[in-house]
Simulated assay, not measured.
Amino acid sequence: MTYTIHGALGSPYSMKMRSLMRYRRITHLWSSGAYVQQLATEKSLPPVIPVIEYPDGTFRNDSTPVLYDLETRHHERSIVPTDPAKAFIAHILEDFADEWVTKAMFGYRWLEEIDQLQMSRWLSFDALKGGGLDANQGMAKVFRERQVGRMAMVGCTAENFPLIEASTRRILQAFEDHVADEHWLFGTRPSLAEFSLYGQLSQLGVDPTAQAMMRADFPYAFRWLLHVDDASGIEGEWDEDGAPLKPVVESLLAEVGRVYVPFLLANEAAAEAGEDTFSIEVAGLPYSQGTFKYQLKCLRELRHRYGKLDADTRAKVDPILSDSNCFEFLQ
């Protein structure tokens, strides 16, 4: 049974799924190229990558539902902690990475000219795999203009970036402090949270401005990314049920409470009021963007998963969420 990941090196969600499948030792092929951008449309899927081709010839995308589907199909080397409380916290961090930390990737990649030029050319190179320099740079110019034009829609503007960057540096500092002692968040093996965070941060480890920042200020967090990229040789265990959270998890949850909770609630309020945009302010730093339907789905899913927790698990989770200012968005 062989899966195919139709993805791209410049796609954080592709890298997330590739590292996840490598760790889980799920047999797969990696395929990339210009065709990938059209494959989702051809298969009547949302226009996002990676597209995962299943052994039976069906196709799916949207990394979070796919990773949970793989959990039902393959039981070895699960990435969901056995402790239901930690499993829920890992899901929160996975969602946070996919929906908030991705803004760092967009901002570092497309706000400054040095990053726009290099990355548009590299991404075009990855897609074309030949065809000559003129074709590569022609495609790069079109791709660059398209991506820069989308920045306001995804909230990655120059005005918003001070908050995005401050949040990113806090995340990287949490990992820098953590990885000197141990690699993983919930034991001696990786969870879905690490793979989602890796997917986004892997791009910062490539783009010129972000890479220079990480090498200078967070060198061990930077190097940690290469370990997550292929953890197929890792053999480990989950922390015992009821064991306290590691400080890195507490720091990451604090960041969720600081920026992601108000972001999700403001987006929801704007959608309910029929407003096209919303704004928040965190520690004096402003942020505004267009109302986004997909984040409403994410918030509903978080609430649904919280609602399914039993009383004992809630008794463990609620104080943690309250301490990190994460409880409000689950009500």
Rank of each mutant, 00 (worst) to 15 (best):
Y260H: 15
P50L: 04
N136M: 07
G199V: 08
W100V: 11
L185S: 03
T157I: 01
D62G: 03
L192F: 06
F125Y: 14
R25F: 09
M119N: 04
S279P: 00
D62K: 04
N325G: 10
E255I: 01
D323E: 15
Q118L: 13
K86G: 04
Q173N: 14
L192V: 14
E76P: 07
Y54L: 09
G149A: 07
Q116F: 04
A231P: 08
E272Q: 14
R300E: 10
L123T: 11
G290Q: 11
I49Q: 08
N267V: 06
R170V: 00
P286Q: 12
L20H: 03
P262Y: 01
V48C: 06
L192P: 02
K316T: 12
F59I: 06
L70I: 03
R300I: 02
D134R: 00
D241N: 11
Y54S: 06
L204K: 01
A140D: 02
L252Y: 08
R73C: 13
A135K: 15
A34Q: 02
F186W: 05
L111A: 04
L45N: 12
H178G: 05
G205D: 09
F292M: 13
E94H: 02
V80Q: 09
S251M: 13
W184L: 01
A221N: 05
A166Q: 12
I280P: 06
L9D: 15
P208M: 01
D276M: 09
F125R: 09
L201Q: 08
P219Q: 07
T4E: 09
D323Q: 15
S63C: 14
T313A: 10
S196E: 03
L226N: 15
W224Q: 03
R18L: 10
F186T: 03
K297G: 15
A266Y: 01
L123Y: 07
Y260L: 08
L296S: 10
A166D: 13
P84M: 05
E240A: 13
S324D: 01
K103M: 15
M21Y: 09
T157F: 00
P50R: 06
N267K: 07
S19L: 05
A34V: 01
L296I: 12
H183S: 14
T82Y: 08
Y294P: 14
M119W: 06
R189W: 04
V256C: 02
D95V: 12
I89L: 15
R305V: 09
A140V: 02
M1R: 14
